[in-house]
Each structure stands twice: as C-alpha cells, then as structure tokens.
Amino acid sequence: MSVAAAAAPARRPFFRKTGALPGFGLALGYALTWLGLIVLLPLAALFLRASSAGLAGFAATLSDPRVQHALLISFGVSAVASIAASLAGLVIAWALTRYDFPGRRVIDAMVDLPFALPTAVAGIALAALYAPDGLLGAPLARLGWQVVYNPIGIFIAMVFIGLPYAVRTVQPLIAELDRELEEAAATLGASRLQTVFQILAPPLIPAALTGLALAFARALGEYGSVIFIAGNLPGVSEIAPLLIVIKLSEFDYTGATVIAVIMLIMAFLVLLIINLIQAWSRRRMGNA
C-alpha cells in the first residue's frame, strides 16, 4: 500500500486527473509499480547493457553483413507473412461472418489455435507436415518445391503465428458492416465487385492494418516455431532472434543486447508507421 501511495503521481503539481471515482491513486500506483518492476526495469537493464557497446558498437553490429541479412530476413519474411496472413484473414473472416455453412462454428473456434498452442509444438508439427516426406511436403516435393529449411519455411511458421490476429481484428467490423449501404449500392446499379471494393472494403482497412501490425509484431519476434522449420543457414534463413541466441552462445552479451535493441526499435518504428497510416485512414474514412 505504501508503495502504491508513493508511486501515485497525483502529488505532482502539473498532473491533473479528472473523474469523480475513488481509487485512482491506488489503481494507477499499483499498475505503475507492477509495470515498472516487470517490464520497465528489465528492459532498462537491456538498454543499459546494450549501451555499453557505445555508438561505435552499434554501428559495427549493424554493418556486419550477417546481422544485416538476419534483420533483412526477419523483417522481410515477417512483412510478407503478415500481409499474406492479413489477406487470407480477410477472406476467412468474411466467410465466417457472412456465410453460414456446416462446421462454421468449429472453424471459427479453430482460428485461435496458434494463439494458445505452444510455439515449439507448432514448429515441430509444421516441420513434420511440410518436410519433403511429410503429409503435405511429399506432394510438393514431387512438384519440385521444397518448402522447409529455407525462407518459405519461416514464412509458413509466421503465417501460422499471425493468422488469429489477422482474422480476429477484422471479424467484428465485418459483422458490423451496414447492409443498407450495400443494398443502396446495388439499387444504384453497382456490380457486386464494385460494392465490395468501393463500399465494403474501405471501412475495413484500419482494422485490417491493425491485424497486420499485430501479426507483424508477433512474427518478427517469433523463435520457437521458426527454428524447427527454417534450416537456419547464415545469410539465407537465419532470423534475428536466432542470431541473438547465437550471440549468447558465444558469451557475447553486449552483441546480443545490441541486436535485441535494434530489433525492438525497428519493430516500434514499423508499428508506429502502420499506426499512423491507420490513424490517417480512420480520419479519411470517418470513424470506422
């Protein structure tokens, strides 16, 4: 209690809260204390350790071609995978909310599976399925396509991880779409395609972007499922989180934290840009 009271910033003169309810100091104080202990303090340790490398250290790490490539792979494949997940997510969400078909509820519930399934288990299962002698990998291999132990494998794992976010963000909005608008468009002679792309799609864009951002953030940091299926070749299919683990195995803590910090900052920037686009499209579209 005393901790909470001490942390409650209500004392600061410039700080004003509005609202008549009690418990603000306690609630905020507790939340801030807990946030500080669990999230901020450890992250501060991360930045502190990384800062011991100095600017030169950061520059050296960033100019290492292997690091560059791992970051490129991580960001590139995450981007492609989250876009793919978002597009597929739109279609799936559309099918799940707009149509009724047998097994709809089951499929709807299944969408959240990657969220609750441990990533290592997912990685093992995906690798087993898509390996050249796996259930799905074998037919693909006969076509001459090898989909694991290369960036495609990373892509598969990341789509898996990102899918629930892509579906769940747009689903409520599709449910809310105004049917009358569609009817009006149809009455005015618009074709179905025109209606879909000009009337229905625009309000979904902000939510779809949110889903994209979430899937991207999740895919970017993913480790457990990717290493089982990626092949992990330096410069080909080595992801940045793996490079962090490798640096740790070399007892190079500073190097590991530098990559971690770079990833963190870049992820933030990408997410920030997506959120800005989203805010902008929200303003343009009206309050979607």
Binding site: L35, A217, L264
Partner: peptide
C-alpha cells in the same frame, strides 16, 4: 479517469507484446 500520458501508458502496457520471447527471457 483522464490524465496526461494515458496513451503512453497504454503503449507501455502493450510493450511486452512486441518484444521477442527470446529477449523477454534475456
């Protein structure tokens, strides 16, 4: 309640989400 820095606080609450699990352990 309304108070300054609220959006920032929400961002901080969400911060762990964008941190790679490996880094979270580290």
């Amino acid at each position: 309640f309304d108070f300054p820095g609220k959006s920032f606080l929400i961002t901080l609450v969400d911060l762990p989400f964008s941190v790679s699990p490996v880094v979270a352990g580290l």
